[in-house]
């Protein structure tokens, strides 16, 4: 028998198996449930029900708008933060960036409830302004997820190119638009990916901050699963999966998006 040598690539076999069992197989099950009815036979019933219901479509829209708004806000707030953080002139210690992540150690539910209590104490009540408080809660919670990839990209940014841009006579805004922005594009896309989907599909923040008057796609999935309507819930989950697939397809040409997550410590 031919003796086979250990190769480094074999190290990925357990990893691959784990993913097949616990990531891919479960997702296939979701697709299966999405296109069957309660008796297990193939059906487009959930499809018809979802797209035939004007309210569900509007729910999807509202969730997308909140998601997009949150993405824009997080990036707008987070971008300058990341820029300041990578600039050695302003921030000497790398520890400061950790300060933006550390709140995550205090659990997210606890933080969200605390935010609600704080807002209540200063007179912004969830019952009166449910959308406002929900938005605040979203930004508050997802800002670190936007800062992280932006920060990692900017760390890798080639500073010489910025110098070169100035040397060639570009003004500050020109340099920013023509040099810095394109270089940080993977970070921006990555940040958007980390914020948009989770916002759309979150249900805890909308429940806690909006006094349960706000419904997002995430609430809808959770509601259907609570009511043992797996097929309907799975179909909505399937729609989310499709949206992710489309977004991945749109950003497929932007290389190195995946390499900018992580690497803070």
């Amino acid at each position: 028998m031919k003796k086979l040598r250990f190769k480094r690539k074999h190290l990925s076999i357990p990893y691959l198996l784990f993913f097949i069992f616990f990531v891919i197989l479960p997702l296939l099950l979701i697709v299966y449930y999405a296109f069957t009815d309660a008796n297990g036979s193939f059906s487009f019933g959930n499809f018809v029900e979802f797209f035939g219901n004007r309210n569900k479509i509007r729910l999807l829209s509202v969730s997308a708008i909140i998601g997009a708004l949150n993405t824009v806000l997080c990036i707008l707030i987070g971008y300058p933060v990341a820029m300041i953080l990578v600039n050695k002139k302003f921030v000497k210690s790398g520890i400061i960036v950790l300060l933006f992540i550390m709140p995550m150690w205090i659990n997210f539910v606890l933080r969200t409830a605390a935010t609600r209590d704080l807002l209540y104490a200063i007179g912004i009540e969830g019952g009166n302004y449910p959308y406002l408080t929900t938005m605040i809660g979203m930004v508050y919670n997802y800002l670190p997820f936007a800062i992280l990839p932006l920060y990692s990209t900017m760390l890798k940014m080639d500073k010489n190119l910025i110098e070169a841009s100035y040397d060639l006579g570009a003004t500050k805004p020109q340099t920013f638009v023509k040099t810095i922005l394109p270089m940080t594009k993977p970070g921006i896309i990555s940040a958007a990916q980390m914020v948009f989907m989770p916002t759309m599909s979150s249900f805890v923040i909308s429940d806690v901050m909006g006094e349960r008057k706000i419904q997002l796609i995430g609430n809808s999935i959770q509601f259907n699963f609570d009511q043992m309507r797996w097929n309907e819930g799975s179909f909505i989950a399937f729609i989310m999966l499709s949206i992710i697939a489309i977004l991945m397809f749109l950003t497929r040409n932007t290389t190195k998006v995946e390499t900018v997550r992580g690497g803070v410590w």
């Binding site: 690539k9 990925s12 990893y15 691959l16 993913f19 616990f22 990531v23 891919i24 197989l25 479960p26 997702l27 099950l29 979701i30 449930y33 990916q193 980390m194 989907m197 989770p198 759309m200 599909s201 979150s202 249900f203 995430g218 999935i221 959770q222 699963f225 797996w230 819930g233 799975s234 989950a237 989310m240 999966l241 992710i244 977004l247 991945m248 995946e258 997550r261």
Partner: peptide
């Protein structure tokens, strides 16, 4: 190898990009 690498890199992205609740219910179903 290159093709395998692309596949593995691709599936690594799934849990990151996937909505957390979808991951959660998919595991529940499993």
């Amino acid at each position: 190898r290159r093709r395998m690498k692309r596949v593995l890199n691709g599936i690594t992205q799934i849990p990151v990009l996937n909505a957390e609740i979808v991951t959660a219910i998919s595991l529940t179903i499993l």
